[in-house]
C-alpha cells in the first residue's frame, strides 16, 4: 500500500469574482521511504500541496489516502490526530515557541499525543535532540541559538513522534548556503534511516538531495521524475 495516494486534488479559492486554482487536479503517489522534492515557481501551489499532505488543510475536492485511510473527508480533531501521530513539519521560519527551551519545543508533539508520561517525553525529546547533534543545547531558548541550530531543533521536533512522513516547506530558505547544506545532510541521514521525506524548495542543488522531483506549474504537475541521485 502506498503511503500517500492523491487523486484529482483541487484547492480552489474564491476571491470575489475570480477563482484561484491553487491546485488544479493533482494526482501523485508517494511510497514509504521516498525522498521527494517539490519545485515550481512562486505561486505554483507548492505550499498548498504541502499543507494538504500535512493535513493542515482540506481539499476542495479530490481523494487523499494516507496509509489507506481516507483523509480528505476528516474533521478537525481527526486531522489534528493525524498531524500529531503521522506527520512531522519543518517550516521555513522554524516556528519554535520563543519562550520555551529546545527540550520543551521538542516535547510539544508528545504532549499533544496525550499518552506519553512526562519522563518518557523527556527521554524521547533528548534522544531526538541528540540525533540532530544538539544534545548539549537542551535548555537553550531559540534566541540563544543560531539559525541552523534552530532549524535543527525544528527537525528534532518533527521526528520525535516517529512520524510516517517528514514534510519540510523550504527548510533552508532562511539559512545561508553552508548551514542549509548541513540541514540537508541531516535530511539525507534521516532518509537513510528509513524516513519518508517530502520537501519544497526552489533551489536545484537542494532538490538534488532527493531521489525524485515533482515540478508544479499553475497548480498542476508539470514534471514528475527521478533525479540523478534517484536514477539507478
Amino acid at each position: 500500500m502506498s503511503l500517500i495516494k492523491v487523486k484529482d486534488l483541487y484547492k480552489i479559492y474564491q476571491m470575489g469574482n475570480t477563482e484561484v486554482r491553487a491546485l488544479d487536479g493533482v494526482s501523485v503517489t508517494i511510497e514509504k521511504n521516498e525522498y521527494v522534492s517539490i519545485m515550481g515557481p512562486s505561486g505554483s501551489g507548492k505550499s498548498t500541496l504541502m499543507n494538504l499532505l500535512g493535513c493542515l488543510d482540506t481539499p476542495t475536492s479530490g481523494e487523499f489516502f494516507m496509509d489507506g485511510i481516507n483523509v480528505a473527508t476528516m474533521g478537525d480533531d481527526e486531522l489534528a490526530h493525524i498531524r500529531n501521530k503521522k506527520i512531522g513539519f519543518v517550516f521555513q521560519t522554524f516556528n519554535l515557541l520563543p519562550k520555551s527551551t529546545s527540550l520543551r519545543n521538542v516535547e510539544l508533539p508528545l504532549i499533544y499525543n496525550g499518552e506519553i508520561k512526562a519522563h518518557e517525553r523527556r527521554d524521547m525529546a533528548i534522544k531526538a535532540l541528540t540525533r540532530v547533534n544538539l544534545g548539549d543545547r537542551v535548555s537553550h531558548k531559540p534566541n540563544e541559538l543560531s539559525g541552523g541550530q534552530r532549524q535543527r531543533v525544528a527537525v528534532a521536533r518533527a521526528l520525535v513522534n516517529n512520524p510516517a512522513i517528514i514534510l519540510a516547506d523550504e527548510p533552508t530558505g532562511n539559512l545561508d548556503s553552508k548551514t542549509g547544506e548541513e540541514i540537508m545532510v541531516l535530511f539525507d541521514e534521516l532518509h537513510k534511516q528509513g524516513n519518508t521525506i517530502i520537501l519544497v524548495t526552489h533551489e536545484e542543488h537542494i532538490a538534488a538531495h532527493a531521489s525524485r522531483v515533482v515540478r508544479l506549474l499553475d497548480g498542476k504537475i508539470a514534471v514528475d521524475e527521478a533525479t540523478n541521485r534517484g536514477k539507478p
Binding site: D77, N84, Y112
Partner: peptide, 16 residues
C-alpha cells in the same frame, strides 16, 4: 496567534 498555529500544526485539538 502564531503559537496557536504551531501548537495546532503539531497536533493540538480545538479543545486542547
Amino acid at each position: 496567534t502564531r503559537e496557536i498555529g504551531v501548537r495546532k500544526a503539531l497536533g493540538a485539538t480545538r479543545s486542547q
